[in-house]
Each structure stands twice: as C-alpha cells, then as structure tokens.
Write a protein that binds this DNA or RNA. Structure first.
Lengths: 247, 247
DNA sequence: AGGAAGTCAAGAGCACTGCTCTCTTTTGTT
DNA sequence: AACAAAAGAGAGCAGTGCTCTTGACTTCCT
C-alpha cells in the first residue's frame, strides 16, 4: 500500500467512521493487497477477481460488494502504484540538498529504475501497453500519474532559476510554432521560467528515462547483451543530464 | 502479412510443395491474418483462438491442427510484426542516399513512429509489457527483432567511417570498465569501428527513440497536453541526432 | 423493543476462454 | 477403387468476468 493513499470518505459526514465503514475500508485494503500480489505473480492482464476472492477466503461474488468490477480494481492498483512510485522518487530526491540539481536528477532516475525493477508488474501496469478494454479514469489517475514528471521539470526549472544550467549541449534546434503553443501552455500551467527550448529537452529526457527503464524491465535488451546494466543506466543518465545542461 | 515471411518447409524434401502443403500454408496464413485483425481490435492479451476459429469459419478445435497453442500463434504474430516493422524501416531508409546519414536516421525514426501509430496493437506486442505467461522463443524472434537496432547502429557506424560524425555534444563521460566489456562484445560482433563511447550514445538514442514512440502510442502524454505531436517527435529526433553528432 | 433499512456472503447461472479427447469426413496417393 | 493421412466436428473439463436471487445479519429509527 502506498503511504499517501488516503482513506476515502464517501459519506457526506466524514466525521465519525462507523465500525462498518472501518471494516469495509479494511476489506478493500485487503483486496488491493492481494491484488498486488497477484499482479506481481501473474501480470495485469491475468488479474482475476475470482482468484483474489479465493485468497481472501470468500466467494467470488462477495468481492463485488467492495469493488464494482475488474476495471475498478485495476484503477485502485494503478493509483496505488503511481503513489508508491511518487513516494519513492520524492524520498530519493529529498535526500539531497535543494541546490544539488544534477544530483537530484540522478536520484530521480535511479529511484524510478529501482522501483521498476523491484515491482516490474506494477511498472508494466503504469507504463506498458494499455490493458485491453480498460480505460483509466482521468479524474482519479492524472494527479498521482503526473507526480514524477512534475518533479522532474520543477527540478530543471529550479536549476534554471538558480543559474545552474549549463548551455544546452548540441546544435540549436528551432521550436516550430505549433509546438511552441503546447509548450507555452505547459509553462504557464506549471509556472515555469525555463525557456521553451529547454522544456522540449525536459520532455525528451523524461521520455528517454522511461524508455531506458522500459527496455530493461520489458526484456528488450536480450539475454546476455548487457551484463553491466547498472553502469549502462548510470551512463545514460549522465548523457541525458548533459542534454539539458545539468552538470 | 510481412513480405519477408518465408513459406516454411518442414519436410526434409522441400522440393515439391504438395497441394496439401499448399492448402495448409494458406490456412496458416489465414489464421495469422485473422489473428492480426483481432490483435488490432481487441489487443494481445484478449487474443482468442476460438474467436479466430469463428472468423475462419471453423470449429475451435480445428485450428489446433495448424497452431500448437495460443502461444505459438502469438509467436507467429510477433515474427510477422517484427518483419513488417523492419521492412517499413528498410524501405524508408533506402529512400535516401547512402551518404545522407542524418537523413537516414530521421527516416528510420519516423518510420518506426508511423508504423507504431498505424499498428498500435502490434507495436504493443513487440515493445509493450510482456504478455503474461508467454515467453518468446529466441531462436525464432531474435533475428527479426534486431533488424531495426542493427540498422540504426550500422548507420551510425557508417557515418563514423565516412568522417561525418560531429564531435559528440555534451560533456565527456567516462565509460566504466564493466560496461566497456559489453560494448567491446557488441563492437566485435557487429564489426563496428565507431568508438565505445559513441556506442553508448547509440544505445541511448535507440532506447530514447522507442521511449518517445511508446509514450505516444501508449497514451502517456495525456489527452490535450501535446497537440503538435508530429512536431514534438521531429524535434526530439533532432535532439537525439545531436547527441550522437549526426548533423 | 421492534420493525425498517441497509449490508453482506453464498450459490446458481450465463457466456466466454484454452485445451484435450474421440469420432467422422474429406482428401491425396497408390 | 482402396487405404492411410489429414482435417473437421463435437463433447467435455477447468477456468474466467459478471449478474441475479436468496438468506442471514447489523444498524438505525420510531
């Protein structure tokens, strides 16, 4: 369970949680816990409500008292995983002082990778191919799902404000007009001071970070091609840091 | 169907394909074609042999005469998709002259993205989360699965041999010893002349390319964040080209 | 205190899946 | 024409998501 998963208060008067509500919340938490175990063992697409019910010691239809259907259980697991990843990233980043922008970037990257290797099934649920027939409800997943990228771009923005960003490496590339509109919206929504051209570089290191992690978690590197995967990833992080001027 | 899918010749005397073998090969091709349609509509995990049998106009047990089980059908689809992607990349790259290394890199990137957007389910099968319980047989998938990355690194190597690679952008990053061993093996196996440090950059642009495509295909960009996705991708390709010195 | 309302577990049932088995029909070859 | 191999049909097993009904229990309000 994620530490930031708040106990939901569906009733208007959220003052006194009745014993019934307590028992209900506890059962739902058990379902999520068992669901995560099944997810880790069998994968997302093979997540079975009946199997969860068996492990819970209850008949399959009883689970539907707590979880509307299989999709809602997936949503619960999705939010839980997003928050766990966000917590891991926050904890790793907060270890370093605010001014150590490059160190914080590396800490963020390693935190993502370590969590992904520790929970490959959860990572696949978040960043792998979408589960067929399942559509994540944005109103419940957008906020936890954007924690990592927000943390990433805010770190870059803070480095820019502090004047700690080196001149971006590589030849200057012009930002086309249509793209500039999107970037302007992002900058204003997040209150960024970093210029547009660096926002695109931030997006690139974001997608590249997860691209590297996905290739490793999903087994695209093949069996014996890379034995030194820790070093490979650290090296790639260094290159990405250079792209955006985080030295 | 991929144009490079060779008709398999299981019999020792592969001289005269009997009418029975012809009919059998045709039926298998039909199964793969219908399987691809189902893959595109319902996704990989929901691929159903019974549904394929229905569309084939045959009872479910009959398809087991042609395909050993569901996993083997997945393998057939996997190889077919790998070859289709490889063909698309080859065709796009071969449009440009051999000496236009930067143009060929951009063509490769756009070919990957265009194919992925055209066949998102196939792309998810190749580069998304692994299908639970399915293990791709390496002896059948490694060769078609490495066509794109080989084409990518060979293009970089050719550019290096031609002296067309600019000095790599960004600060110099040392390659640790353990990683150097892996890189040496890759260089000798592929007969590369490009130095180790640039091989790591090649690996980075490889993973970054597919990271960007995956984020777009798998919907990680959210609903309305990026309206100018073509421009965003082209811009990212330009940045990646700069990483490796392809100007 | 007692009844109304709400909650929960259980079980049957429907339609679907992968896969195996047996039986019958088709088909190519001799 | 006869025969053997290949292919199709159908039943069946164990599993899935999900719905519906039934009975038991708890909580709350009058």
């Amino acid at each position: 369970m994620s530490s930031t998963a708040k106990p939901q208060a569906p009733t208007p008067q959220a003052k006194a949680p009745t014993p019934r509500e307590r028992a209900r919340a506890r059962t739902i938490a058990d379902i999520v816990r068992i669901g995560r175990e099944h997810l880790a063992v069998h994968g997302a697409a093979a997540l079975s409500l009946r199997a969860v019910a068996r492990d819970l010691g209850v008949v399959s239809s009883a689970v539907y008292r707590y979880v509307e259907n299989r999709d809602e259980l997936l949503t619960l697991l999705l939010v839980d995983a997003y928050n766990e990843l966000g917590d891991a990233v926050d904890a790793a980043v907060d270890t370093l002082p605010e001014g150590d922008f490059a160190g914080r970037f590396h800490a963020l990257g390693h935190a993502v990778r370590n969590w992904a290797l520790r929970e490959p099934a959860c990572y696949a649920l978040l960043f792998g191919s979408p589960v067929p027939g399942y559509r994540a409800p944005g109103e419940r997943t957008i906020v936890p799902g954007t924690r990592v990228v927000y943390r990433l771009v805010r770190n870059v923005d803070a480095a820019h404000r502090a004047g700690a960003l080196a001149a971006p490496a590589g030849p200057a590339v012009v930002v086309p007009d249509k793209l500039a509109g999107d970037l302007a919206a992002i900058r204003s929504e997040l209150g960024l001071e970093v210029p547009e051209e660096l926002v695109t570089r931030g997006v690139l290191i974001w997608t590249s970070l997860f691209g590297a992690v996905s290739f490793e978690v999903f087994g695209q590197y093949g069996a014996g091609t890379f034995a030194a995967r820790d070093e490979l990833f650290a090296h790639q992080l260094g290159l990405l840091a250079g792209i955006i001027g985080l030295v």
